[in-house]
Amino acid sequence: MTAVIIVIVALVVILAIALIVSYNRFVKQRNLIQESWRQIDVELHRRYDLIPNLVETVRAYAAHERHVFEEVARLRTQAVGAEGATPEQRAAAEGQLSGALRQMMISVEAYPQLQSNQNFLGLQRELTDTEDRIAAGRRFYNANVGDYNTRIEAFPSNLIASSFKFEKAGYFEVKDESVRSVPQVSFGTIGSVDGEQAPPQMPAGGHSSGQIQPPLPGDQQGYQQQGGYQQLPPQNQGQPPAGAPRPQDGQPPFTGA
């Protein structure tokens, strides 16, 4: 009887320890997700601060691009107002803002003076660095969300999640198709390099222009002049024809007919 009680108590203790460990792990993962999201939020606010300065700098050189500036300002206000929304809603707002910024940067390519403005170049560099940090933070956040959501669905940790009301977290995914699409790469004509022409194709006869043609049987003119090559002299120049008598000593050599 005493042994049975000891076994039961041991099982209860083991289950209690497993329950505590699983619960604490859920709490740790949830806090890690919140911390990684705060890092993203910091970078998003930094981008919100850079956008007005960038727009004003561009407006000084491209004032007639008014519709582009208005769209960027509207979407920035929309993104700032979505701070308390879910990550999915924030991602949708940020995707629209990124698309408007990209459109503005494309429109300023027609202004060489703006491209040489140091203030614009500095703001553009800061915005690019901020976008890179946002992308890195998004990957870290989504990885933590994936681990957390997997434990909520897997057995037996799903029993702990349902008992203590742990809910799945939302991903912060890019919705801009221009970012997600695969770039198109063209290699041009096989056997050629960009800016160079492919080598000429061989005609049906097996010879291409600019090559020396071998002489046909009975052709006494040697190789023909083609492609800029000099015509070779006949092979029998200065030699007597076949069957002619050899010159005797003291006679001039045969020079041909």
Results as ranks from 00 to 15, higher is better:
residue 113 Q to G: 12
residue 96 Q to S: 13
residue 140 F to T: 12
residue 32 L to M: 06
residue 3 A to E: 02
residue 9 V to G: 12
residue 188 G to A: 10
residue 175 K to T: 00
residue 97 L to M: 05
residue 171 Y to I: 14
residue 116 S to Q: 14
residue 255 T to S: 14
residue 257 A to D: 02
residue 123 L to N: 07
residue 47 R to D: 02
residue 206 G to V: 01
residue 181 S to D: 08
residue 223 Y to M: 13
residue 175 K to Y: 01
residue 106 I to R: 15
residue 34 Q to K: 04
residue 147 D to C: 00
residue 152 I to V: 12
residue 9 V to T: 02
residue 186 S to E: 04
residue 189 T to A: 12
residue 140 F to K: 08
residue 229 Y to M: 10
residue 162 S to P: 00
residue 191 G to A: 13
residue 243 G to K: 15
residue 136 A to E: 06
residue 239 Q to C: 03
residue 37 W to N: 07
residue 247 P to K: 13
residue 120 F to G: 11
residue 115 Q to F: 01
residue 138 R to L: 03
residue 16 A to W: 00
residue 247 P to E: 07
residue 26 F to W: 09
residue 76 R to A: 02
residue 127 L to A: 14
residue 101 L to A: 14
residue 242 A to H: 02
residue 143 A to V: 04
residue 13 V to P: 02
residue 109 E to Y: 13
residue 161 A to Q: 00
residue 57 T to N: 08
residue 140 F to C: 04
residue 78 Q to T: 05
residue 79 A to Y: 02
residue 114 L to V: 03
residue 118 Q to V: 06
residue 119 N to L: 07
residue 136 A to P: 01
residue 182 V to E: 15
residue 232 L to S: 13
residue 183 P to M: 09
residue 245 P to L: 10
residue 106 I to C: 14
residue 246 R to M: 01
residue 100 A to Q: 12
residue 97 L to Y: 04
residue 28 K to P: 00
residue 241 P to K: 14
residue 66 R to P: 02
residue 83 E to S: 11
residue 31 N to T: 09
residue 203 P to Q: 13
residue 194 D to Q: 12
residue 167 E to G: 03
residue 42 V to M: 09
residue 29 Q to E: 07
residue 71 E to L: 12
residue 105 M to V: 09
residue 132 D to H: 06
residue 91 A to P: 03
residue 124 Q to P: 01
residue 29 Q to D: 07
residue 177 E to A: 15
residue 160 I to D: 08
residue 101 L to D: 01
residue 11 L to H: 05
residue 130 T to D: 14
residue 234 P to N: 15
residue 167 E to M: 00
residue 208 S to L: 02
residue 176 D to I: 09
residue 69 F to V: 15
residue 78 Q to D: 01
residue 224 Q to S: 10
residue 89 Q to T: 03
residue 108 V to Q: 05
residue 204 A to K: 11
residue 229 Y to E: 11
residue 111 Y to R: 15
residue 111 Y to W: 11
residue 249 D to R: 06
residue 92 A to Y: 04
residue 108 V to H: 03
residue 179 V to A: 14
residue 2 T to A: 10
residue 110 A to F: 04
residue 22 S to Y: 06
residue 65 E to N: 10
residue 58 V to G: 07
residue 50 L to M: 15
residue 244 A to H: 06
residue 176 D to K: 12
residue 119 N to W: 02
residue 189 T to F: 05
residue 180 R to D: 03
residue 75 L to D: 07
